[in-house]
């Protein structure tokens, strides 16, 4: 899978809109969710949201080692992340917000971190599957961001085979998008149905044969993404 810089940027910007509502993404976003180990609440941070009991320590370590404006103040927290609950630590949360808003280095570190955590694994999966089209990259990357992978239970619901197994790439992507769209749109929870703007965007791009992502803008949840 070879993407030009513009194609990769386009993929990231579309995902940013899905996740945060803005093209550039919200690097300072902090949410508290009860999805930590044994149902504990935890801090979730950054452009593509990494968690206190997941990979937040790795992200902060990367930033601390980069000697950013807030590295010295965040360094003592390295020993606490994932060990001591930090959801009520206002100083820590403010440091995370300030670093993302006021230090471009934090935004750069987040780009590198999320690229390593999500984009590269998604592209590795795409390469192993024999995919070559930029629109396929976008669909697969989105699935890794939204569902953490290409879920097996969805793959079992459609007959197309992977390109690497002599299947037709466009057929596989179209069937996967349709299957994912159906799963989300018919979900028993109405709030989950609200996320079909992602698959609807892909269905639109497939319909206008935009496999090279050359036709812009791409309309993502009502936002025109042009670059």
């Amino acid at each position: 899978m070879k993407l030009s810089d513009q194609q990769k940027r386009l993929c990231e910007h579309v995902i940013n809109v899905f996740e945060s509502g803005s093209i550039e993404g919200n690097y300072a976003a902090i949410s508290i969710y009860a999805d930590g180990p044994h149902g504990v609440k935890q801090v979730t941070y950054g452009r593509s949201q990494t968690t206190e009991y997941g990979n937040l320590e790795e992200l902060i370590e990367m930033y601390v080692n980069s000697n950013g404006l807030y590295s010295a103040q965040l360094k003592p927290y390295l020993a606490k992340i994932g060990v001591t609950p930090l959801l009520d630590d206002a100083t820590f949360k403010q440091l995370l917000r300030d670093a993302a808003k006021k230090d471009s280095l934090m935004r750069k570190v987040q780009d590198e971190f999320f690229d390593k955590r999500y984009f590269q694994p998604a592209m590795a999966w795409a390469n192993a599957g024999g995919f070559t089209q930029p629109l396929s990259a976008l669909v697969i990357y989105d699935s890794f961001i939204h569902s953490g992978s290409i879920p097996d239970f969805l793959r079992k619901r459609f007959p197309a085979t992977l390109p690497v197994k002599n299947g037709v790439e466009k057929d596989w992507i179209k069937q996967y998008v349709d299957t994912r769209h159906e799963w989300l749109s018919q979900h028993s929870k109405k709030i989950l149905q609200g996320t079909i703007y992602r698959t609807q965007c892909f269905k639109n791009e497939i319909a206008r044969d935009n496999w090279a992502l050359a036709k812009i803008p791409i309309v993502a949840n009502g936002v025109n993404v042009i670059d």
């Binding site: 996740e19 949410s31 969710y33 009860a34 999805d35 044994h38 149902g39 979730t44 593509s48 949201q49 997941g54 890794f144 961001i145 939204h146 569902s147 953490g148 992978s149 879920p151 239970f153 929870k189 709030i191 989950l192 996320t195």
Partner: peptide, 23 residues
């Protein structure tokens, strides 16, 4: 409750996971 809500997470590692857990 913790066990059942955790078991409802299909999108492990994805941004959909908190929504699945909370629902």
């Amino acid at each position: 409750r913790i066990q059942q809500a955790s078991a409802a997470i299909i999108s492990k590692g994805g941004s959909l996971a908190p929504l699945e857990y909370n629902d």
